[in-house]
Design a binder for these strands. Structure first.
Lengths: 224, 224, 224, 224
DNA sequence: TATGAATGAGTTTTCATTCAT
DNA sequence: CATGAATGAAAACTCATTCAT
């Protein structure tokens, strides 16, 4: 999930934005709109989500909505972008930036842990993102065709790990990068669903991440 | 995916079916309808899929559609069921039925391989199934609440594997079962997307599965 | 009600009839069709009644229906006509034919009693007739504009009653004829609705009729 | 009819209403919609009445209709309610409220006269109400099950009349109440139909009512 | 800028009737 | 005659978007 957001951030040259009028609103109203939008997009798939409901819940006129945003897609993009930005704050950016100073498994742990933390604190944003992830057609319609940067991120990490001798060189880096990416996309999603886990217990959360990493590490690490 | 299909098969007592009129049609027309439906459901999320488009593409009158099926949901269920049945043919049922005679990793290989084969040969059916898997609300509306049997299937396998000493007893079976289930749901999906892989080369396909299994096996197997 | 049926009978020159094919059917099938039609027309207003349901319940093909009847209206007319004929059997025709031999109140009693008896024995036919009576548009569409013969029947009776000195000459015959007609149309209907009355108790039925006649007689009879 | 309206008025707590948007319309448009609706509901039975026709005749977009009303039933209820309110203005409420100060026959006269006046001035509203009265299924669907208050109203009047010695104690009050109710429901309806009566001649109207009352009075009043 | 009424294309569904076999 | 699939007009209802004030 996290990586996907990084990706989105990178392609932001193409992104559409709310109109200036939206940014001129008083914060209170802006937030009413954003919250109403998140509520609706979290609840219904994109095509089922209704501008009417958003306008009603934000207590703005339907006409006003079109003063602020080009159309439904414009709003959706904006909400996705907000999620990205929110999510980035949960990542230990320092560690990622200086990724050559940390081991592969340290970095991986951080990436997954961030995703999990985010899921815990912002379940609705997670729901919105999940709606997008589950709808490839929409995903491409909104962001266009792309090379998956998150894949490249993991690939780079893996190759570095092999060079460093931390990872079994018999694994196929491309394939494993795909798996890790896939896990990063769905991890927080499926953990979140498990009602038995107390999301407020941070120790327990880490324990889960660590169980997974134990499995991954075993699967990847070089043995003598 | 495979396990989910087994599940669906089991609850088939509740399933709704096309009307008799549909089965009385000449095969050629029946297939036109089925293909048009698969095309539409593969292309659009369930709620966006249009009866009109299906009728048009199948070259039948809109009214005829309702001679054959109760409604959109009825058709959708039927298409899902077709997928299930098609998929079951790709599974080495013999091996699954006699699962106590095979090792955990042999069974896992078979399960994943089946999913992959199916994805290769019926990409549209995969797309339809994926639409359902990605829409939990619809899934429950159609099939009712349920305990995920595929999870239990993997869990059982894992516990047997631990008892037999094939699997590292330090892993958390519940958690790993979740991961394996998750992989089974998405594996063929994400492999299929990679245009670089030659789906018609069966050796290459197996090679991919085996790469994944190498990783999983390393992650799980007991070491001395 | 009864009088309305007499009326219909008289205008039968205009009536449409089932096709010959219908009359060529074996009685058993004919009756299946008639019963299914009565069931449907008793249950739903004319425009809501469905040929499909009738064909299904009669176990005939929908196409066959159109071999027997011109269309829905044709069938409806036929069912109405059947009701009329059935109803006529409940009337002491002898008494009506020789109406100059009986007193006004004797005749009135017979007319109302007949309607009541019929309602009791054929509640579904009553329901069908009531559907028609309640839908003037349909009534005229089916039977065309008409002078209400039942009105004339009562009027004639009343005038005779006045001449004979049985009826108060201060009443307005036209007006009272209208009221009596109206009562004849709705009497059985509203008595039938009253769940408290035991329709199978013939004495009780007569008692009701007689209560009404007591009231009417008081209202009309000449006093010295 | 009148009494039924009183009844409806009483249960008005449950009534559904047009949306606010409807009341915000300029009066001219509101009236166009109301008139188009009355025209359609007067012409066709409820299930046959077409939203499309109403929208067309009111010169509004079909979509606009749904801005104003929840659905067809919502509109129908509103039209019925309008009729009720209009009708109540024709009733000498003062007299009804103080019913112990007036004789049974005076009250009856007032009730029937009101119904007649209303029928004369608003024939279409009468047609609409009659559609409802003739469709018990719809009536109950819209207003719910109920004890017929109008029956009780007449029953009460009658019993008081008996106690006061104004009415023949040999009549069956329940039965007569039913008849009077029935007459009140259909009176204006059947008078209206008679093209020969000059509805604009108020004296003539009263004359008709009085003819009827003469008959009823004779039928009911106590004789020495 | 704010408003909210107006729009109408698009969707599902129903059913009387036709027609080829 | 029997059959039952085919048809398509017609209906209710939805909702993103426009636009006049």
């Amino acid at each position: 999930m996290f990586i996907k957001y990084i990706l989105i951030d990178r392609i932001k040259g193409v992104r559409y934005m709310p109109k200036e009028t939206f940014f001129n609103l008083v914060n209170e109203k802006k937030e009413r709109v954003i919250e109403a939008a998140i509520d609706e997009f979290a609840l219904r798939p994109y095509h089922q989500a209704r501008i009417t409901a958003i306008a009603d819940n934000a207590s703005i006129a339907k006409g006003s909505f079109y003063q602020y945003f080009e159309d439904k897609k414009d709003l959706f993009k904006y909400i996705i972008e907000l999620s990205v930005n929110k999510k980035l704050k949960y990542i230990n950016l320092d560690m990622i930036k200086n990724k050559d100073k940390y081991s592969f498994f340290q970095l991986l742990r951080e990436v997954y842990l961030s995703g999990f933390r985010f899921a815990k604190r912002h379940p609705k944003l997670l729901a919105v993102a999940s709606k997008l992830a589950n709808n490839k057609e929409l995903y491409r319609e909104i962001f266009g065709e792309y090379k998956d940067k998150s894949l490249e991120f993991f690939l780079e990490l893996l190759e570095q790990g092999i060079v460093e001798g931390a990872i079994d060189s018999k694994i196929d880096p491309v394939f494993v990068a795909k798996m890790l990416t896939n896990i990063s996309y769905t991890l927080s999603d499926f953990i979140y669903e498990d009602g038995e886990i107390d999301l407020n217990n941070i120790d327990e959360s880490m324990e889960i991440i660590d169980k997974m990493l134990y499995f991954i590490e075993n699967g990847l690490k070089k043995r003598d």
